[in-house]
Amino acid sequence: MSGTEPGGPRPAVETDRDPGLQPERTRLAWRRTTLSWAVAGVLAVRQALRADDSAVGGIAVGLAAFGFLGILVLAHRRLTGLDPARPEALPNRWAVAAAACTLLLALCGAALVWWGSTG
């Protein structure tokens, strides 16, 4: 069976444009990720504003802003990198960098919560 009967699975067709819109979906996934980062970042800034120790708050906001900038740059480069019909796979370094930015936010948050509750 060649799989051409109606309702059956269609054989994969090689075209210039991916009919499954995989690059587009990946681009949207990056957008969702930056948006989620923005929401978590706003909560982090709110947390910093409540901190008693303004030095800790300032440093944490600075680091979180750095992490957000990192995610934005990564996402932008990836979005343009997904333009070709057959994009390259995500480089290891970028994946590690994206995770590191998020890790930075979590560590800033932990510092803020810790000093907020002991200070």
Partner: peptide, 10 residues
């Protein structure tokens, strides 16, 4: 991960 972090702040 971001949702968990945001949840922690919340």
């Amino acid at each position: 991960a971001l949702a968990l972090i945001g949840g922690g702040f919340a």
